[in-house]
Design a protein around this nucleic acid. Structure first.
Length: 879
RNA sequence: GCGAGAGUGGCGGAACGGUAGACGCAGUCGACUCAAAAUCGACCGGCGAAAGUCAUGGGGGUUCGAAUCCCCCCUCUCGCACCA
């Protein structure tokens, strides 16, 4: 057969043709409120930010979801699989600043491009449900939800600290703060207190924690991370009286400091008290002490991110104030301002017990404060136990602690000390939560306007529902510092809806996490005049399978869980948990390349380099040497990206889908390699060729009996139905791919056996196996599957996308013999082949007779015989 | 720093506590070819002539049996509240 007549899967023609066919038949449309009686299945992947082009992470995410959607459809579910755009956010404003392009135009162009790219992937998406969060027809409903939350008491106004760039006159995201400086201006950033709208997620902290137990189709680690984030702790609040009241500027002197601790049992090990730089007592210290003021000012320039605060050097300033110990008369401790104490957690003040807390110990060693152990580990001598540079935070027995001595720490001692605090009226046991209320105000243009009005006479006035949506002004400029909406000459000026007097609009917009906290509900009825249609959400919610990156394990998922409850409270929805099943995928990584040999040259794109036969890597155009860097997440800054569009053009969507599924488990990071893609491409061609050869065989009635090769092939095919199904159910897509390779190898073997051979029924079995292969591979490579099926059934109007999932014949799939491993003392010494139903006695006899095993057993006493049916025999011998 | 994961041949990985390395990629040799590509066949963890033996990041433990369960350590990844 010459190369020219070699059958080839022409993806360039086949893929658009099948996409058009699915579209024409409406294969993937769902109804808002279906009446077909089928069980529903809602598959959702995290919607993308429209950055301009899809990246490999998207290909992976949406391929995973599409496999699930297509598989569930074949299993008889009515599947809803929508797509939309998380279209508000900072990058659009950056584009405006850098290229003078309006965020709306930039975003809409990006959406158009990315939609086309996603459509080329052959995803089984109901595009009639598409929404973009930057569209007033979406965000107007969000404003309505917010106003209903406000009326329901779920919203508050509160001050909080933000990163402030004094040069750009703007608030910075944590990621825009680099080494304490603004990324654009380079100016040292400051902490600034701003009045913000918050959603009261902490009202739901206990419930959000408790309900995690019911999320049995979520990864355990995500539930753990959320539980830790919510951070329930049991401790005590206690008040320390100042030795002498601190004089305030006015009459509001401070007489004491309230502290929250999870370890009240270590109270006798105290050596200092520390307050956050933002604490009122710190303010008082600053008022009378220039050193304190300078230290606080320094702390102000260190950013608001917890990670930054926790990793920097622990530093403090002694205010000169002293507090009294609640139980020990006449003993006082210094009050420090410390840069590692968080104003947002607990009361913004701690007592320091260096012996039993690492941060306190580091601080005490730096400033030479005393370190008194009050808990000794079991087995340690109280007289000699001391703490070096490692705090002891384990369980033990109380010492040096007055009435607590001898009690078990921490639990019994905690109970005793709390009882004493309560008896003396200086403190009480409390449950504390790490979770903070959700600040949703952003001083940015490209977001959903917060629909409130400020009136000097009436105060804060919600925008009346009839005036929604509050649309963003289009005619904004980005040439001045600050928020473009606030700078707009007229937009914010409005008459108060209550009194009619002059008033101004809120110029802050919502955090984009608000947009993504309810889009899954909107997808159920994307054209509804209300935020959601109750019948539609009642039918479709919760999402049965949600798929996205692990990087969203906490914030997005927790906010969405809160939002569903808030929408429940305001009557929009009855489902508390929006995502019944969650799958978190790994990242897509690639080698990175830098010009030169020092590893610090310009980053190069993968298609700018060439790997020579001797293993060295050079720049293709110039031959300059290139350093191959580590494999890491694809990112624009490192230029280690691969453009999915180019891959699809060159190898086809099925190849891209197949590779991204094949190489490793979906929850793990995947390294994109060119050779892997070529391998995937070869498989599409191989499967097509095998299938087409079989399709050329005459279609005939099923024979009455089959020869050995035909029986073997049928066994392989029916086993593949079982194993591929099992793998898909378990999200083990890489295993499903491996099973498909095994089936194609079996078809290939049969093709060879057919040459010259005369095996009864082999032609029929080949056609059967190839049809099974097409239907099993369809969720993963849908275009190829259709193409094969069409060759097998010329003239038929049936398509794989509308066919049910194949059923395995278990009797055909069963093995004729099983191999049982035989061990002696746990080491493999041989195998025996047995019929599947063999008795234990028969298997043990055959195992003992295996020559190698018999040799080892000779003259020995068998102490124990371990027998695991169909798997293993282990002889434990003595003597 | 705190919280959460991951680590198996040259590479990606497979493996209800039960034959470690399925399947793929790369590679080596061979067939076909004028040649190349494609395709097909054989080999493919280390040591050893073989019998064997050592091997799942490192060190301990539980078990008849551990990649899998427990403890300690190392390395890498994710999150840390205004990136999405």
């Amino acid at each position: 057969m010459s190369a020219a007549s070699e059958p080839r899967f022409d993806f360039g023609r086949a893929e658009p043709r099948w996409q058009a066919e699915w579209d024409a038949r409406g294969c993937f449309l769902a109804a808002d409120v279906p009446t077909d009686g089928k069980p529903k299945y809602y598959v959702l992947e995290m919607f993308p930010y429209p950055s301009g082009k899809i990246h490999m992470g998207h290909v992976r995410n949406y391929t995973l979801g599409d496999v699930v959607a297509r598989y569930k459809r074949a299993r008889g579910f009515a599947v809803m699989h929508p797509m939309g755009w998380d279209a508000f956010g900072l990058p659009a404003e950056n584009a405006a600043l850098e290229r003078g392009m309006h965020p709306a135009k930039w975003t809409r162009e990006n959406i158009t491009n990315m939609r086309a790219e996603l459509q080329r992937m052959g995803l089984s998406i109901d595009w009639t449900r598409e929404v973009a969060t930057c569209d007033p027809s979406y965000y107007g409903h969000q404003q309505k939800l917010f106003l209903d939350f406000l009326r329901a008491g779920l919203v508050a106004r509160r001050e909080s600290w933000v990163n402030w760039d004094p040069v750009d006159g703007t608030v910075l995201a944590n990621e825009q703060v680099i080494d304490g400086k603004g990324w654009r201006s380079g100016a040292p950033i400051e902490k600034k207190l701003l009045s913000q709208w918050v959603l009261k997620i902490t009202d739901y902290a206990p419930e959000l924690l408790a309900a995690l137990d019911g999320l049995d189709r979520w990864p355990e680690r995500v539930r753990l991370m959320q539980a830790n984030w919510i951070g329930r702790s049991e401790g005590a609040r206690l008040r320390f009286e100042l030795e002498a009241p601190a004089e305030g500027a006015a009459a509001d002197g401070i007489a004491g400091v309230e502290v929250y601790t999870t370890r009240p049992d270590t109270l006798y090990g105290m050596s200092f008290l520390a307050v956050a730089p933002e604490h009122p007592l710190a303010d008082l210290a600053a008022a009378r002490n220039a050193g304190a003021a300078a230290f606080i000012a320094e702390c102000r320039s260190m950013g608001t991110s917890e990670a930054v605060i926790a990793t920097m050097e622990k530093r403090g300033f002694d205010t000169g104030f002293r507090v009294k110990h609640p139980f020990i008369p006449d003993v006082t401790y210094p009050v420090w301002i410390a840069n590692f104490v968080l104003m947002e957690y607990g009361t913004g003040a701690i007592f320091g017990c260096p012996a039993h807390d690492q941060r306190d110990l580091d601080f005490a060693r730096k400033y030479d404060l005393s370190v008194v152990p009050v808990v000794v580990p079991a087995g340690e001598d109280a007289a000699t136990f001391s703490v070096g540079n490692e705090a002891f935070d384990g369980t033990g027995v109380m010492i040096n602690s007055g009435f607590l001595d001898g009690l078990a720490a921490p639990d019994a001692a905690k109970r005793a000390v709390i009882a004493e605090l309560e008896a003396r009226g200086v403190g009480q046991g409390v449950v504390n939560w790490r979770l903070r209320d959700w600040g949703v105000s952003r001083q940015r243009y490209w977001g959903c306007p917060i629909p409130v009005i400020y009136c000097d006479a009436c105060g804060v006035v919600p925008v009346p529902d009839s005036q929604l949506p509050v649309c963003l002004p289009d005619d904004v400029t980005f040439d001045k510092p600050g928020n473009p909406i606030a700078n707009h000459p007229t937009w914010k000026h409005i008459n108060c809806p209550t009194c009619g007097g002059a008033a101004r609009r809120e110029t802050d917009t919502f955090d984009t996490f608000v947009d993504s906290s309810w889009y899954f509900a909107r997808f159920c009825s994307p054209h509804s005049a209300a935020p959601v249609d109750r019948a539609a959400v009642d039918h479709w919610m919760p999402v049965d399978q949600y798929i996205g990156g692990i990087e969203h394990a906490i914030l997005h998922l927790l906010y969405s869980r809160f939002f569903s409850r808030a929408m429940g409270k305001t009557g929009y929805m009855a489902v508390d948990e929006p995502f019944a099943g969650l799958f978190t995928q790994g990242m897509v990584t690639h080698e990175s390349y830098r010009l030169g040999t020092g590893g610090n040259g310009t980053w190069l794109y993968p298609d700018e380099i060439e790997k020579l036969v001797d293993g060295t890597v050079v720049r293709r155009e110039t031959g300059e040497p290139v350093t191959v860097g580590r494999v890491e997440a694809m990112s624009k800054s490192k230029r280690n990206t691969v453009d999915p569009g180019a891959i699809i053009s060159r190898y086809g969507a099925d190849t891209a889908r197949w590779f991204i599924l094949s190489d490793n488990p979906p929850e793990r990071d995947i390294e994109w390699t060119e050779s892997g893609v070529v391998g995937a491409y070869r498989f599409t061609q191989r499967l097509f060729r095998l299938a087409e050869n079989a399709a050329l065989l005459p279609a005939a009635a099923m024979p009455g009996s089959f020869g050995p090769a035909a029986r073997g092939l049928r066994r392989a095919a029916h086993r593949a139905i079982q194993t591929v199904t099992e793998a898909l159910e378990g999200f083990a897509f890489n295993v499903a791919v491996a099973r498909m390779y095994e089936l194609s190898n079996a078809v290939s073997d049969a093709e060879k056996a057919a040459v010259g051979g005369d095996d009864e029924g082999l032609d029929w079995a080949r056609r059967e196996a190839v049809e099974i292969a097409a239907r099993l591979v369809a969720p993963m490579m849908p275009h190829l599957a259709e193409e094969i099926y069409a060759r097998l059934h010329p003239g038929s109007s049936a398509i794989v996308a509308e066919l049910p999932w194949p059923e395995a014949d278990a009797s055909l799939a069963a093995a004729e013999l099983v191999t049982i491993a035989v061990q002696v003392l746990g080491k493999l010494r041989g195998t025996v082949a047995m019929a599947p139903g063999s008795t234990e006695a028969d298997v043990l006899e055959a195992a003992a007779a295996e020559p190698n095993v018999a040799k080892l057993l000779e003259g020995k006493r068998i102490v124990k015989r371990v027998y695991v049916p169909n798997r293993i025999v282990n002889f434990v011998i003595a003597g």
